[in-house]
Design a protein around this nucleic acid. Structure first.
Lengths: 224, 224
DNA sequence: CCAAAAGTGTTGGCTGTACACCCATGT
DNA sequence: ACATGGGTGTACAGCCAACACTTTTGG
């Protein structure tokens, strides 16, 4: 017997097991654009189509472990925002169960796996055309969740380097929400939340006034 | 091969399948108390302990179908709020994957299954002592989600009969949030949301002033 | 007439939004 | 000197929280 299975008693034979896949929606912001990590499929079904990275859940592996492993495989990163998103049972034709996680990474720290087969690449979420396995819906769902979380959590910490200017932070928020934000109101709001603090360092890149750099007080998720 | 499985190519043998269970957290409000539906286990493991109702995902069955089926088995209800909550892989010792749904039902419409084995019963969430399979954590998680949803959706529609007084609605909100609410502010807020409308009927139960009855404009989830 | 629940408004504080100009730097 | 992005304050409106008494009915 297994879990809370009160009907298992009446059907004691033939445990109907399933293939369980773990999929990871890895998002990043690059130059004001929200990007998703896709891999080019090297085998059927959907050979040569793009899809989200994923793989089968191994024996004796926990779901989150598998998601961490996949994320590490593709980006070399381990200590980032990674959260379970949704579980689908109808993405492929064979009734596999697919547990989807989503991750947020700083593109400057991500080192995409160098493979010729199943090669990963960043793709702007806005013009992500037909993906394999109805993965477009999965990406949309991740995007929706990310937008919601922006309003009540500090998730952006995982999309930025340790030190960043307020303008950079604002650009990140704008890339995710798709909305331009008022500079003064944005700064007032963020500072009053007290989730970031000045580092004392200045940016001084480009031919303009150097920017004060900030860091997140906590490098883990906080719910406001 | 299955889903987005780029590593399946490198491990072409021995598909590691898993048992997939579907669990349903069925919540209701009865006399100002939030209650959860539990079943008394009739077999090991955890024989005679209480746990959430659930069962194995059948072959060729979608997750939501299975959740609907379990909910119907236990309460006879089908057209209520039912939403996926979370997927666990470490509730039991055997590494089953458990996809948890949560449902909200009107206790006056629910007809609990009449069984001697695996008998279902309502239990107040506040003093739900040790459940099998770490189901206490699952219930806590459901409660957290429900409380959050109360603030930005009309989910209470599924906990109440078609017509109800504002006092009853307030009592429902209070039972869920665990907080007393100010009557005037509550009414102002709810009415301004424009999610309910007066039916024209009066309640006239008990030895007191009859109450105006209302109904939800939509009997499905709305996000504010 | 008493108990019990229904119904009803106003005020003050806070929060969010709209809005425009000067500053420091590098070229 | 100019182009580029950095940095700053105020005023108004809408929202939320606090707060108490009268009404209607049944017993």
């Amino acid at each position: 017997m297994t879990l809370p299975s009160n009907d298992a008693a009446s059907r004691p034979s033939a445990d109907p097991e399933r293939r369980v896949a773990v999929i990871v929606v890895i998002l990043t912001v690059d130059e004001g654009q929200l990007n998703v990590l896709l891999i080019r499929r090297s085998a059927d079904p959907f050979k040569d189509a793009w899809s989200l990275p994923g793989g089968l859940l191994r024996r004796d592996e926990a779901l989150k472990q598998a998601a961490v492993r996949k994320l590490d495989d593709e980006t070399g990163l381990t200590d980032v925002f990674l959260e379970q998103l949704y579980t689908f049972s109808d993405l492929d034709a064979e009734g596999s169960v697919a547990v989807v996680y989503f991750a947020l990474v700083d593109i400057t720290e991500a080192n995409l796996a160098q493979r010729t087969a199943w090669e990963p690449a960043w793709s702007p979420v806005e013009d992500t055309s037909d993906l394999a396995f109805r993965n477009n819906e999965v990406v949309d769902y991740a995007l929706q969740r990310l937008r919601a979380k922006l309003d009540y959590s500090n998730v952006a910490y995982s999309l930025l380097p340790p030190e960043f200017s307020l303008s950079r932070l604002q650009a990140t928020y704008e890339a995710i929400s798709g909305q331009p934000l008022d500079k003064r109101n944005f700064r007032k709001r963020i500072l009053s939340l007290d989730i970031i603090e000045p580092t004392g360092h200045l940016a001084s890149e480009g031919r303009h006034r150097p920017a004060q750099l900030y860091r997140f007080r906590e490098r883990k998720q906080i719910i406001f």
